[in-house]
Nucleic acid binder design. Structure first.
Lengths: 231, 231
DNA sequence: TAGATTGTTAATCGATTAACAATC
DNA sequence: TAGATTGTTAATCGATTAACAATC
């Protein structure tokens, strides 16, 4: 019997697989509501129009052990995914940039059940400072390093204009932030060991615009095309 | 001499390369402002902390021909990228879902110079209908199919709750939309031939959360880690 | 000319897909 | 038992990286 709670695969976790788990997770939640109690990778693949082998590989990554001919207990699989991703252990986050996007992000309550909780918002604009947005008061940016240091906040979310992204990053890093989720359209540099996740809409726009224009084939990508409904 | 304006490579365009072009593009714009007139792939790689070979491969994709020992004329390279991505030929788009995220998206004026222009907004909520957001009046969702059909709008942007995503998709497709940019946290199905670009924050949250917790290595991904500053 | 950079071809590496044995 | 599904190993495919010749 394999170790429970630890991952069976010592090798390497494909980023693309990580990003597919939420898709399965969501389908499972829906099935649960519909009263389903057991599920196989084949079921998931069918519902989502994905390749069954790929689904199985991704699910195995979580370390869950299934039953041949049956699949997995739905509730258990949900728990394994949550545990594997760390979604059952939300990390605190600070957000910088209380503009329209930042405000929208502050309103996503579901983040908490998906591994992250934004506990404070910062901005440099005196107009914004002191405002309450979705229950959090916007603080002066200069307070950020101390806040992060004292509270040991692991995550920083950047929703500033491009020009502010690098300076804000540096502040976060100085405070000991371990991961940065960057929504600013800027290429920022972080020291080795700091996790950086870019959410640059212009990257997507490049892909979308290109595909719309051309008849040139583009290789399918993790967050690109889904499959046609053909079954 | 190669054909000008057409792509030299008949093969296959890697999605990841498409998504990197905006990074170069942005650096080039900054260099331009700084008065630089010539640039090599090596220069770009140095500034961005990326692999020079990769930068060269990506740049070549646009079809531009450079000069050995010199590189490219900066202004020309910018134009080649714009033309390759179609950023100089903005496509019209409709947006559905005038919530906080939708409103934020309506405020991104830069979209127009990056291949896309949101020309109308729709919602199903009577409270929202009639409101003006960044100069566009929110229309009833039921008007969408006719609008899209008459105006031949190629792009649909979805910023609705998850439950609305598939029905809205179906409306868009019925109206003849050719590409969908989906911000709703939902796996939607589109007919073959319709381009789908998902912008699901929970996918990123999965990756971020996992990396924060574990010492397990994750394969580097297109929109993941940048390089450490080490030069 | 010398040498840096382009353009191109080959090697490597990893993700996806296929094949198949084990099992309930 | 028969057969569907898991778990695992191998094959394929494509992106990244390396090597090198051409060129200004």
């Amino acid at each position: 019997m394999k170790q429970i709670g630890s991952n069976p695969r010592t090798h390497l976790i494909p980023e693309a697989s990580l990003r597919r788990l939420p898709i399965y997770y969501r389908s499972l939640q829906e099935m649960k509501v519909a009263g389903v109690s057991q599920v196989s990778c084949a079921d998931l693949a069918r519902v989502l129009g994905l390749d069954p082998t790929q689904v199985r590989k991704d699910i195995e990554m979580t370390g869950i052990v299934g039953k041949p001919r049956v699949g997995y207990l739905l509730g258990e699989l949900v728990l394994w995914i949550e545990n594997f991703l760390g979604w059952n252990r939300p990390k605190e986050a600070v957000l910088v940039g209380a503009g329209s996007l930042g405000s929208a992000l502050l309103g996503y309550e579901k983040f908490r059940s998906h591994g992250m909780q934004i506990v404070a918002a910062f901005d440099i604009d005196p107009e914004k400072i002191g405002q309450r947005i979705h229950g959090r008061e916007v603080q002066p940016l200069m307070f950020l390093p101390d806040f992060v240091r004292q509270r040991k906040t692991p995550v920083g979310v950047i929703a500033t204009p491009a020009a502010a992204a690098q300076p804000v990053t540096d502040l976060m890093v100085a405070g000991g932030i371990r991961a940065i989720w960057n929504f600013a359209p800027a290429h920022i540099q972080v020291p080795e060991g700091v996790i950086l996740q870019n959410e640059d809409l212009y990257h997507s726009l490049a892909s979308l615009s290109f595909k719309l224009e051309t008849k040139m084939p583009v290789t399918p990508a993790e967050n690109g095309n889904s499959y046609a409904e053909d079954n």
